[in-house]
Each structure stands twice: as structure tokens, then as C-alpha cells.
Write a protein that binds this DNA or RNA. Structure first.
Lengths: 156, 156
DNA sequence: TCAAACCGGACGGATCTCGTCCGGTATCCT
DNA sequence: AGGATACCGGACGAGATCCGTCCGGTTTGA
């Protein structure tokens, strides 16, 4: 019952992209430096985002990634499902291959409701919502020196 | 982003218990036969439920498990968290050990909202809700013979 | 032609999942 | 007292998933 690092990194990387002028092509090196994400992992994640049409990739020298839509038109649900696959609290809730327990499985109904709630939340949030409020870690640590201790929560 | 089998089995086992007169002591062998759950696994799961105070255990001959409260007073949230540990979409959302990304992490806020939605759903559902609508698999297969083909969904 | 940058598959260690097994202990029955 | 019964609890283990890394291949620009 957790989000994967891949999805986390994917969202973070996209916010970094979304903070720039629309259409700007950025290398993964830049993005992962900005958000402190392992380089080759983020590369792999962005391959999925490209395949899902969220991001466009440009190869060769001067290449990189750019958003293929406005940040306000990309939902968190899209991003997360592009990386993790469809959100399904249980096997039988993904495609309707029927529940293995019984005809009217109460548990599956419950899980279906819960699952739809989180989908609603993710669907209602766009990348611009996320990018607006997010301050990249690298900026914070730079401003703070390298004190690696407890972080006073800023901004409620 | 999935519920574990353990939680699934736990809920199922408890519904079997909840269908009986309150306080009746039932062996795990009976419960797992009824719900078609591996015996030793369910035993282990019920240990957690006992530790969480959801179920009472009786040892020795004639022993087994019984609900320690009315089914209407046991929430799905309790059950699931007793088995899986606290629901936390991300490490930083469990106890407040602060987000590793930044002060005002937008992603964590989003995940927190989604997580609370599912907690609400689980909290609003009781064991009696689940037990009422659930027909154990064993009963279905008995009534149907051993046709292992596609199951026509009964009851909307 | 060369270097830059993404593509995509293989690999690998760590962790989690899904159980099983077995000796220990508490309880009941005779 | 002595068994038989049933839960307790820890160890074990196969398999899957997670979290990345690596490297050869391909595309592109200079």
C-alpha cells in the first residue's frame, strides 16, 4: 500500500520540467541534479513517460525531454499510472476478470470504492498544482548549507 | 499500491467468524476450510488480530478464536492496519519524520490527501457490513459442482 | 565523423510477499 | 497424571518486486 520510488521520482522530475518555459528541452542530467534523483533511474522512468505521451524525447546532441502538454493538462493520475501501471488495489479490480472469492464479494466492493477515491484525488490534481507548491530539495539544501539534521517544516 | 493477501485473508476469515453467533469459538481449520485459505497462513494472520485485540484466542483442546467485539464495532481500517501495519502511502506519511524532499512538498500533501480518503472509506465500513454481503467461496463451489470455468457475476 | 543524448534490455542486490514447519505452551478430558 | 488438542512464535525459503546500474545500440547535431 505504497507509492513506488519510481512514481515519486517521476512526479518530481516532471515538476522540475514544468517550472521552465513550456517546450524547453532539458536533459535528464539537469533534472536529476535539480531534484537529487539517481541519474540512470530517472532516465528509465522518463522513457515510460515518453511512451505514455506525457513527455517528448529528443535524441542526439542537444536532446532531452520536454512536456508534450501544458502542466495544467497533465494529471497526477496519468503520471502515476504511466509509471506504475493502472492503480488496482487488487488483481480483480484491474480488468474485470472476476473475483476469485465469490459472486458478491464484499471485500472487492470495498476496495473498489477506496481505489476510486484515490483515483479521484489524483485525477483532480495537475502537474501545475504540484509544480507551483514544490521547492526542489537542491535549492533548500543550498540555502541551508549542508546541515543534514532535522528539517523544520516550512509552509503549511 | 495493493492490498496484501494477508489482509485479504484476514478480512475473509473474520467474516466467517462474524457470521456465527457472537462469542462462538471457532478453530482456524474451520475458518480456512470455509474461505479456502491456506491453514498455517491464516493461523499466523489471526495471531496479529489477537494481538490487536480484534479477536480473542483460546488455547488447548476446544480452543480457537472468537470475536472480541460486535462485528458492527470492528472497522475494516482496524483489521487491515492490524495485519499490514499503518496505512502510509509514503514513508514520511506514517509518523511525521519529515519529508526528505523539501519543506513544502506538494507530492506528500497530495499523497496525504489520497491516503486519508482510503482511511475514511475503510473506517466507515464495519465487519458486519462485510459479513452481511459476503458469500463464502466454498458455499458457491459446492452449489455449483466443481465447474471451474468462468463465474457469472451474481448480485450487483 | 565524432560526440552527445536517449533507447531498451539484461543484470543484481535488497526487500517484501506468501506461505510452511516445528518446537513450545496452554487447556481440556479421562 | 498423561495425552490430545490447538494456539504461539520464530526460523526458514522460494518467488516476486523494488531500486537501481550498466552497456551496447541508435538517433541527432556540429
Amino acid at each position: 500500500m505504497q507509492i513506488t520510488r519510481a512514481a515519486e521520482y517521476g512526479v518530481l522530475g516532471l515538476t522540475a520540467l514544468a517550472r521552465r518555459p513550456l517546450g524547453e528541452v532539458v536533459m535528464v542530467d539537469v533534472l536529476c541534479a535539480e531534484e537529487e534523483i539517481p541519474r540512470s533511474f530517472l532516465g528509465k522512468i522518463f522513457q515510460n513517460l515518453a511512451k505514455a505521451g506525457i513527455v517528448k524525447s529528443a535524441r542526439g546532441s542537444g536532446g532531452g525531454f520536454s512536456l508534450s502538454r501544458l502542466p495544467g493538462q497533465i494529471t497526477a493520475l496519468e503520471i502515476i499510472e504511466a509509471i506504475e501501471g493502472p492503480i488496482a488495489f487488487q488483481r480483480c479490480l484491474d480488468e474485470d476478470l472476476g473475483c476469485e472469492h465469490s459472486g458478491g464479494c464484499a471485500l472487492c466492493s470495498l476496495l473498489a470504492v477506496a481505489q476510486n477515491r484515490v483515483k479521484e484525488v489524483f485525477h483532480a490534481t495537475t502537474l501545475s498544482d504540484l509544480a507551483g507548491r514544490h521547492i526542489p530539495n537542491s535549492a533548500v539544501t543550498r540555502a541551508r548549507g549542508k546541515s543534514r539534521g532535522k528539517i523544520p517544516l516550512a509552509a503549511a
